[in-house]
Design a protein around this nucleic acid. Structure first.
Lengths: 224, 224
DNA sequence: CGAACGCTATTTGTATACAATAAGCTGCCT
DNA sequence: AGGCAGCTTATTGTATACAAATAGCGTTCG
């Protein structure tokens, strides 16, 4: 992570996520190199990665632009994610170890604590949520799946307006996680897959609704 | 395609597929640069792409190796492919245009001709088969899906022993394509998805069987 | 007035030199 | 003999200079 190309990658990525680089705008390698304090070489490297992850698209003459996704695009990403993650859950149910199951329980317990407080601790929730899903990926035992999921999972963050979490949805997440653990515990792949599908699709609708609330007042898509 | 990095990409890729670069072996940027007649810069570019496509993996200290997939790995690739391509078929059924439908019919007709001759024309079959599936991807209207599918579709080629095609399986492919066209024609996404799943899974078993026949005589995985 | 041509400036692609890092070896010490 | 230290070499990472491509613009010609 200390390599210049890694620093460039993180820097550019965070500039995209924060809106500092606006969706649709052209990005030039040299400008980024200056911003990141490195030469063009590692910047090009970082751009290639970000392009593979669909944060950046290039036109026919190789010029780079920040991707801008419509809500429809993001629904499609969620749908793919639901499918892939359900598949991962189905595989995981057959392969998960007692240790992994214990870790799932522990992270979901931390989630419960994070949302039980008077003021829910969102960063803590997100962190343990990420670990929870990572363990399922790990238990599914497929690198390929992990790679693909990474592509569709982080994408929705690009519409920043939806970073609003209501307690109701956080609680539902926690309960769905509990049901996932039960499904894994009984080694029921179909059950796990079904709960996971519902989990992701509910998350999409929560996201879309929050996004609609965010946009109706016109406070949308402007640089941070 | 005339850029040096593209030439390097194609060259390295074909060396991997032909077995000239053996699975598991380390590959050095400079050596490849000489082989391709370009400098290291475009080679590194090509390696990054091939790494994203899982033809190459890198160890913790950034050294590159030709990936070697087990039959289990490839079954998993086929399974992912079945899932993604079924999803594409389901979407395509709702969106496909009359023109695209006509092109599907025409390609499948060419496939029929290719396998009706006394000696089946395998390259012709493969070419029209590729177009047939490409049209379905196009009709599904999802770039993301296309990208992911590309990753899992070309992977099985790495085990070269299975490049044997028996007439029986070619005929089945043709008939399954016919049924797909019918499902699209009646805009029945579930039908299309089911036929596609069966289509890909049958292809996997044909592949695995051919591979078993290829390996039982010990003629396996040696450079071409 | 519009279209097409060619120039210029901008941007990306490639080569090469050098820096940093990791691997492998040699020889010493225990 | 075994293992560790330090050196040596192999390999990848980064910077920079230059080459190629292309987009934008102004001019000219129909």
């Amino acid at each position: 992570m200390s390599r210049a190309s890694d620093r460039a990658y993180s820097h550019i990525r965070s500039m995209i996520l924060s809106g500092e680089l606006q969706p649709g705008s052209q990005i030039r390698e040299e400008a980024l190199a200056e911003l990141c304090g490195v030469s063009r070489t590692p910047v090009r490297d970082a751009l290639r990665r970000l392009e593979a992850e669909l944060f950046i698209r290039r036109n026919e003459s190789q010029r780079s632009f920040v991707a801008d996704w419509s809500l429809d695009d993001l629904e499609e990403a969620f749908q793919l994610r639901a499918m892939l993650e359900a598949y991962a859950a189905r595989r995981a149910a057959k392969r998960i170890s007692w240790d992994q199951l214990a870790r799932l329980r522990s992270h979901n317990d931390a989630i419960r604590q994070a949302i039980s407080a008077a003021q829910p601790d969102i960063p803590k929730f997100l962190d343990h949520n990420r670990h929870f899903h990572a363990i399922i990926m790990e238990a599914s035992g497929s690198q390929r799946l992990s790679g693909m999921l990474a592509q569709v999972t982080e994408q929705p963050v690009v519409l920043r307006t939806a970073q609003q979490y209501d307690l109701e949805n956080l609680r539902r997440s926690h309960h769905e996680h509990e049901e996932l653990v039960m499904a894994f515990d009984s080694r029921d792949g179909e059950w796990a897959a079904a709960v996971m599908t519902a989990h992701i699709r509910r998350a999409f609708h929560a996201y879309a609704e929050a996004h609609a609330r965010g946009t109706e007042k016109g406070q949308v898509n402007e640089a941070a």
